[in-house]
Design a protein around this nucleic acid. Structure first.
Lengths: 144, 144
DNA sequence: TATTGTTATACTCTATAACTATA
DNA sequence: TATAGTTATAGAGTATAACAATA
């Protein structure tokens, strides 16, 4: 092991943390947070997801997610709904205000994507995405 | 913007969070943490750093770092020392116990590096590192 | 006056486990 | 008994600002 700067988890975390902190600061004036954005983006991809599903795709702990959604529901961004087929399950749906907020966050997220990847060719960007997916999948070799 | 899975900050954070969580769990029995490891690794690279320098290279907030170092000093892992040249400055040095802990953490860190990069050619791994450094540097285009 | 580091406070996220209600 | 989600609690990190010592 050489310098920290050659150590992958370090590079990963450093880049991720910086991106997250800047984004967070940027969207706070809109009353949003990185975590709320993740939920909205996940629902944008597919609406009516169950809490457990959301927790996995957003990488937010279930108990954290419960309270996050509490707040988002209070602000009428989303709406909880019991699954008629299985009353244990909660399905989360975007509400109109949530759709409006998503529409405002989307261009910001896209700007971050562009900024982060400035100077990358489309091919390099795709290679990076692929590598990150492989890396994530590799972590299955360790116990969760 | 398509699915979350194509969104770079998401991929970055997801991979980083998973790596960090697993590492954290792994080193806790040794009485260490990811943050403590960062400090030790930074001091391994260059001993006697000042707090502000450490804060930057470890990406740990200065106020958090102060308390982290408090604990590490209590456990005799590191030792604070006033800079004789400028008495405002604190220089941090590894202590013998810190060197021993570093020696135990190093193989674990290396295992994580190998696991994360399993199936990558050396060249692919280096490309990924380069891309992460470029990405981090790109964030200078945004206000800190 | 500016800089380095410490302290204080409020807030957020996590980890863990107990709990409720379904199945 | 097992599962989905909620609630409770303690711990760790962050953001922010005030502060002390020194330059």
């Amino acid at each position: 092991m050489g310098p920290l700067d050659a150590y992958l988890p370090y590079l990963l975390n450093r880049a991720g943390a910086r991106l997250a902190a800047a984004f967070e600061k940027d969207v706070r004036p809109l009353g949003a947070s990185l975590q709320a954005w993740r939920v909205l983006a996940a629902l944008r991809e597919r609406d009516g997801r169950r809490m457990g599903d959301l927790s996995e795709t957003t990488a937010i702990e279930v108990s954290t997610l419960t309270r996050l959604v509490d707040g988002m529901e209070r602000r009428r961004l989303v709406k909880r709904q019991r699954d008629p087929a299985d009353a244990r399950v909660v399905l989360l749906h975007v509400a109109p205000a949530g759709r409006r907020l998503t529409a405002r966050l989307l261009p910001i997220a896209e700007r971050y994507e562009r900024t982060a990847l400035a100077g990358f060719t489309p091919r390099e960007a795709e290679t990076l995405r692929q590598a990150l997916r492989r890396l994530y999948a590799n972590m299955d070799r360790l116990p969760r």
